[in-house]
Amino acid sequence: MADYRDDTDRTTVRRGGAGRTILILLAIAAIIVAILFATGFWSADVKEGALPKVDVSAKGGALPDVDVNSKEVVVGTKSTTVDVPKVKTEKEQIDVPVVGVTDDKK
């Protein structure tokens, strides 16, 4: 009888790694920022700015003056009266099902 075995060397190659993880984190951060601007939680008002004039020698431009307004989240407590149900426990004797295993030895 013939013996058929697969004696090939198997090597696992992992692709992705840190680069893929960083890309995913940057994409999530971009989505969060887009949601904050879309919902109005953040707003940006660009007042003035200028691009540099480029000749043979470039002259530096000015960064835009940006005023970013964010909503304020207020967290606190206040006293109020609410109906709270009272739960009372009592001990009572009842029969509970039991599951067990027996050995066939006599």
Rank of each mutant, 00 (worst) to 15 (best):
M1K: 10
Y4M: 09
A50V: 01
D83I: 13
K47W: 12
V75M: 14
F37M: 01
T81V: 13
V101D: 00
T11F: 00
G19V: 12
T39S: 10
K53S: 14
T89C: 07
E72G: 07
K106Q: 12
N69C: 01
E90G: 03
N69I: 03
T39A: 09
I94F: 03
V98I: 11
T8A: 13
A58F: 12
A34K: 04
I28E: 04
D65P: 00
G40M: 01
W42R: 02
I28T: 10
S57H: 07
G19F: 08
K53R: 14
D6L: 11
A58H: 05
M1Y: 13
D55W: 08
T77F: 14
K78N: 13
G60P: 03
G17Q: 01
S43A: 12
D3R: 06
D3P: 06
E48H: 08
I94T: 00
G16E: 10
D9Q: 10
R10Q: 03
R5Q: 10
I22T: 04
G61W: 03
T12V: 09
V73F: 08
K47A: 11
V75S: 14
R20Y: 07
S57I: 07
D7Y: 09
I24M: 06
I28P: 00
I94P: 00
I35D: 10
G100W: 02
F37D: 06
S79G: 10
F37L: 13
L63R: 00
S70H: 06
D3A: 15
V96G: 02
K47P: 02
V75W: 11
G16A: 08
I31T: 14
D95R: 05
K91C: 03
M1E: 11
S57A: 07
D6W: 07
A38Q: 10
G16Q: 12
K59L: 06
V73Y: 12
D104C: 07
V84R: 05
E72T: 15
E92A: 04
T21M: 02
T8H: 06
G61I: 01
D3C: 09
D67M: 11
T39G: 06
D103N: 04
D67R: 15
V73M: 06
V75L: 15
I28D: 03
I24H: 06
R14E: 09
S43P: 01
A62P: 00
S57G: 15
S79H: 06
V99C: 09
Q93N: 05
V56S: 05
D65N: 09
K47C: 12
A50L: 09
P52F: 00
L63K: 08
G76P: 14
A27W: 15
A27G: 14
A62K: 14
V56M: 05
V82A: 12
M1A: 15
G16H: 13
A62W: 05
V75R: 14
S70A: 15
D83Q: 03
V33W: 05
V82Q: 05
R20H: 08
S79L: 13
V87R: 06
K105T: 12
P52V: 02
K78L: 08
V84A: 01
V101E: 01
V84E: 06
I24D: 05
P52Y: 01
F41V: 07
Y4N: 11
